[in-house]
Design a protein around this nucleic acid. Sequence first.
DNA 1: TTAGTATAGTGTCAAATGAACACTAAGGCA
DNA 2: TGCCTTAGTGTTCATTTGACACTATACTAA
Lengths: 229, 229
Amino acid sequence: MPYSYEFQRPALTVDIVVFALDEDDLKVMLIERDLKPYAGRWALPGGFVRVEETLDDAARRELEEETGLTNIFLEQLYTFGALNRDPRERVVTVAYFALVNLEGHRVQASTDARNAAWFAVSDLPDLAFDHHQILDTALDRLRGKLRYQPVGFELLPKKFPLRSLQHLYEVVLDRELDKRNFRKKILSMDILVELKEIEKDVAHRAAKLYRFDKAKYDRKTRGGFNFEI
Amino acid sequence: MPYSYEFQRPALTVDIVVFALDEDDLKVMLIERDLKPYAGRWALPGGFVRVEETLDDAARRELEEETGLTNIFLEQLYTFGALNRDPRERVVTVAYFALVNLEGHRVQASTDARNAAWFAVSDLPDLAFDHHQILDTALDRLRGKLRYQPVGFELLPKKFPLRSLQHLYEVVLDRELDKRNFRKKILSMDILVELKEIEKDVAHRAAKLYRFDKAKYDRKTRGGFNFEI
DNA sequence: TTAGTATAGTGTCAAATGAACACTAAGGCA
DNA sequence: TGCCTTAGTGTTCATTTGACACTATACTAA
């Protein structure tokens, strides 16, 4: 039973850029399309917004359906409305960007009869639609956010050594950082808690583990906070 | 002749938060609604996105139709998709935020049979829909942007004394700034050009006029720029 | 057991930046 | 000509940033 409207309406979708971090690279989650257009091409997970769900809900639902990821950091990115982004008809998409830590959310390959996989952002295949542009926008946003908000922790496990945090900053910002200065700076922010635990099963001297203390952060966040590293 | 679709589609609109600056206040442009719902209430300018126009185009068109403003700084803000933001049906709106200088764009009161007016953001009427929330989001964005991008100049005439620029920062950031430190900082950025002109018709000592030099700015913008005042 | 090796962890100094602070100069006005 | 209003200008101190190198610890392999 079709629905009719006095004026033509663009279709509305959500697309999600999910970032994760492994030993070497910043990764992004892609889905292999099984339908036309762009069948066989890799694309961002996403789909149509239902009329009875919010945009955030749509993004979380699609993400779960297509990749199995739930309960992750998710934030609206930008809305893309170019006229021919989809060859079939006018489609406006609200893009989201999400951060997960690989430990907690191991790749849940094919769900929903699709193939899902992590790709290094430095070595991507051709993408469907304007998804390359969306991804570039997400990367800019990630780099920007890292500077003034403590989102990086979303990419790490709950407990992490300072090395991992520095590595995160180095990978995302794409430059090397001085270890001493980095530690001084991060610790002086006083938003990390040193745990009574050290790394295990590590080939050499084990590092202390830390966790991000959101309560501490919230207390000092009045008037902004500078994560410039 | 109605259009029909297999699934129900949300309607898609744009709404624009236009900021301007006068002697005392940061102002925002509002439209008095003549139709239900919220007839007689003030609202942000905006309207439906047509299927053959981009989101940016829709925002510019609506802005011109409803307020007469053209050729101004306009940037996408955020997309609002709560289920009951519009009592009639599901409407998703892509909000924009715009900056104008009052000199060049004097209030073009009623156009399109509507009443348009500037309101001080510190003294607003009740607004229709979720427009208060949109406006708050826009204010946050303006304050944020001012810190790391030279958007403030969009609120000033082409030629302006440093006092006006400082006043802009003080009004938007809502705190007083030290005149000497402000001048030192702004001039050290080397993005302003001192003109061979001074203020006219001013009751007391006239100040030198400056203009923003976009080319200069673009040259140094590599790797970010800090407008922290 | 010991030598090797890989990563953890730590401090100083110099330069740049940020914040506080007060007076003189210019020009219109009465 | 005196008054009033705004323009314009430097110094000092505290803080932050950035460059830079060595010792400590723990596992591995001979």
